[in-house]
C-alpha cells in the first residue's frame, strides 16, 4: 500500500543505448540550467524548503483514495510542485524525487532514470507550467482559473509524460508505437484525471489557508517565459509526434505483415530451420563455449569466496567467544 510501482517509471532494460544517451543529455542540460536559475533567483532559504517539499511529494504519494475495483488514485505531484514553487525549483524537486525513487526504491531504473527525469521532471513540469500559465492569463487571476488551470496542468503533465515514455519505448524498439502510444495515452488519460482531481483539492486547500502562495503576481514566476515556450513546444511536439509515430506505415502494415509471415512460414516451413541456424554458427558456438568457460571461472571464484567468507564468519565468533 505504501508504494505501488507506477506505470510511468520505466525500469532498466527497456531502453536502447541511444535513447538513454539522448534522454540523459537533454535532462542533464535542463537540470543544470535549473540549478543556475535557482541559485540566481532564489535566496538560500529555498534550499531546505526544496528538500522538505521533495519529502512531502514522496509522502504525498502515499495519500490515495479508492476509485473502483480495488484501484486507487494517487498523487505524483509534478503539477502541484510547479504551481507552488515555480518551474525551476519544481524541476529540481522532481529530480530529487525521481532520483530517490530509482536509487532507493527501484521505482524506475537507475540507468533509465535519464528518461524518467525527462518525462517527469522536465516534460511534466514544463508542460504543466505552460498550461497553468495559459489558463491563468485567460482567467485573469480568478479562482476558477487557479482550479481549472491546476486540473488541466496536472492532467496534461501526466498525459504528456506518458506520451514521452511511450515514444522512448518505441524508439528503443521495445514497444511498437502503433500499439504502445495509444495504450499508454489511454491509460494515463484516466490516471491523469485522478491526479487532476487531487491537485484541485490540494489547491483549494492552499487557496483557503495560504492564498499568498498561489497568487499569480508572484516573484517566483520571473523568467517563466522560456519555460512557457519550451513547455508549449514540448506539448506540441509530443502531441504531433505521437499520432505520427503510431500511424506510420510500419505500424499500419502490422496486420498485412502478419498475414505475409504466416504465408511465408507455411510455405517454407522446411527451409526456415536450416536458414535460421546455419549462418554464423561457428562464431556463436565458439562464443558460447568461451562464455561457458568464463562462467565456470566466475561461479567457481564466487563459490570459493562465499565458502571462505562463511568459514571465517563461523570461526570468528567462536574464537572470540571462547
Amino acid at each position: 500500500m505504501l508504494r505501488s510501482p507506477q506505470a510511468m517509471h520505466i525500469p532498466d532494460g527497456f531502453l536502447s543505448g541511444l535513447v538513454l544517451a539522448v534522454c540523459w543529455a537533454i535532462s542533464g542540460l535542463v537540470i543544470v540550467y535549473a540549478f543556475v536559475r535557482v541559485k540566481r533567483d532564489m535566496d538560500e532559504r529555498k534550499v531546505p524548503l526544496m528538500g522538505v517539499v521533495a519529502a512531502a511529494i514522496f509522502a504525498g504519494q502515499m495519500l490515495n483514495f479508492p476509485v473502483a475495483a480495488g484501484t486507487s488514485g494517487h498523487l505524483l505531484g509534478a503539477a502541484l510542485a510547479t504551481i507552488l514553487l515555480g518551474p525551476w525549483a519544481a524541476v529540481l524537486v522532481m529530480t530529487i524525487v525521481a532520483g530517490a525513487q530509482a536509487l532507493i526504491f527501484q521505482d524506475g531504473g537507475i540507468v533509465a532514470l535519464g528518461a524518467n527525469l525527462l518525462n517527469m521532471a522536465v516534460s511534466g513540469v514544463f508542460v504543466s507550467y505552460t498550461v497553468y500559465r495559459a489558463v491563468q492569463r485567460f482567467s485573469n487571476g480568478a479562482k476558477w482559473g487557479l482550479l481549472g488551470g491546476g486540473f488541466l496542468a496536472a492532467w496534461t503533465s501526466i498525459f504528456i509524460a506518458s506520451l514521452a515514455a511511450a515514444l522512448q519505448l518505441a524508439f528503443s524498439g521495445t514497444s511498437p508505437a502503433n500499439l504502445g502510444v495509444p495504450a499508454m495515452a489511454l491509460v494515463h488519460s484516466v490516471i491523469g484525471i485522478g491526479e487532476g482531481l487531487i491537485t484541485v483539492g490540494a489547491l483549494t486547500f492552499v487557496y483557503a489557508v495560504r492564498p499568498d502562495l498561489v497568487k499569480t503576481t508572484d516573484q517566483k514566476q520571473i523568467g517563466g517565459r522560456v519555460v512557457w515556450i519550451v513547455g508549449l513546444l514540448l506539448a506540441l511536439a509530443l502531441a504531433v509526434a505521437s499520432p505520427l509515430a503510431s500511424t506510420n506505415p510500419d505500424g499500419l502494415e502490422f496486420v498485412a505483415e502478419q498475414q505475409g509471415f504466416l504465408d511465408k512460414a507455411q510455405a517454407n516451413s522446411y527451409e526456415i530451420i536450416p536458414d535460421y541456424a546455419m549462418p554464423g554458427m561457428a562464431d556463436e558456438s565458439a562464443a558460447t563455449v568461451a562464455a561457458g568457460i568464463v562462467g565456470v571461472i566466475i561461479v567457481f571464484g564466487v563459490a570459493t569466496g562465499v565458502a571462505f567468507l562463511r568459514r571465517t564468519r563461523v570461526t570468528a565468533p567462536t574464537s572470540s567467544g571462547s
Binding site: R45, V52, A59, I198, T199, G201
Partner: peptide
C-alpha cells in the same frame, strides 16, 4: 473522495513549507 484526498495533500504541502521555514 478526490477532493478530500486533495485537501490532505494540500495540508501536507503547507505543513512542509512551514517546516522548511
Amino acid at each position: 473522495r478526490a477532493k478530500v484526498t486533495g485537501g490532505l495533500a494540500g495540508n501536507l504541502f503547507i505543513r512542509s513549507l512551514d517546516r522548511g521555514e
